[in-house]
Simulated assay, not measured.
Amino acid sequence: MRTKSFNEVIADYLKQRAAEDTLFAPKFTNPKKNIDECCRYILGEARKRGNEVVMTDDEVFGLAIHYYDEENIKINVSGGHRVSNTRQVDKPKKEPVQLSVFNQPPVKSAKAKREESKLQLSLFD
Results as ranks from 00 to 15, higher is better:
Arg2Leu: 14
Thr3Asp: 03
Thr3Glu: 12
Lys4Tyr: 14
Lys4Cys: 11
Phe6Thr: 07
Phe6Gly: 03
Glu8Trp: 00
Ile10Ala: 01
Ala11Lys: 14
Asp12Met: 04
Leu14Asn: 03
Leu14His: 02
Arg17Leu: 13
Arg17Asn: 01
Arg17Asp: 00
Ala18Met: 05
Ala19Asn: 14
Thr22Phe: 10
Thr22Ser: 14
Ala25Pro: 05
Pro26Phe: 08
Pro26Asn: 03
Pro26Gly: 07
Lys27Leu: 15
Phe28Ile: 03
Phe28Ser: 02
Lys33Gly: 04
Lys33Phe: 08
Asn34Gln: 06
Ile35Trp: 03
Asp36Phe: 05
Asp36Gln: 10
Asp36His: 07
Cys38Arg: 06
Arg40Trp: 09
Arg40Lys: 15
Tyr41Val: 05
Tyr41Ser: 08
Ile42Leu: 04
Leu43Met: 12
Leu43Gly: 10
Gly44Tyr: 14
Ala46Gly: 15
Ala46Phe: 14
Arg47Val: 12
Gly50Leu: 11
Glu52His: 14
Val53Thr: 15
Val54Phe: 09
Met55Leu: 15
Asp57Tyr: 03
Asp57Gln: 15
Gly62Arg: 03
Tyr68Arg: 06
Tyr68Pro: 01
Asp69Phe: 09
Asp69Ser: 06
Asp69Tyr: 10
Asp69His: 08
Glu71Val: 08
Glu71Gln: 13
Glu71Met: 13
Ile73Tyr: 11
Ile73Cys: 06
Lys74Phe: 15
Lys74Trp: 14
Lys74Met: 11
Asn76Lys: 04
Val77Trp: 11
Ser78Thr: 11
His81Gly: 07
Ser84Tyr: 14
Thr86Asn: 15
Arg87Tyr: 12
Arg87Trp: 13
Val89Ala: 11
Asp90Glu: 12
Pro92Trp: 01
Lys93Glu: 03
Lys93Asn: 07
Lys94Tyr: 03
Glu95Thr: 02
Glu95Gly: 00
Pro96Val: 01
Pro96Lys: 05
Gln98Thr: 13
Leu99Gln: 03
Leu99Ser: 02
Leu99Glu: 00
Val101Ile: 14
Phe102Pro: 00
Phe102Thr: 03
Phe102Ile: 07
Asn103Val: 06
Pro105Val: 03
Pro105Trp: 04
Pro105Asn: 06
Pro106Tyr: 08
Val107His: 06
Lys108Val: 06
Ser109Pro: 02
Lys111Gln: 10
Lys111Ala: 10
Lys111Ile: 10
Ala112Ser: 13
Arg114Thr: 07
Glu115Ser: 08
Glu115Asn: 09
Glu115Pro: 00
Glu116Leu: 11
Ser117Met: 12
Lys118Glu: 11
Lys118Trp: 10
Leu121Arg: 10
Leu121Tyr: 07
Leu121Glu: 15
Ser122Asn: 10
Ser122Thr: 12
Leu123Cys: 06
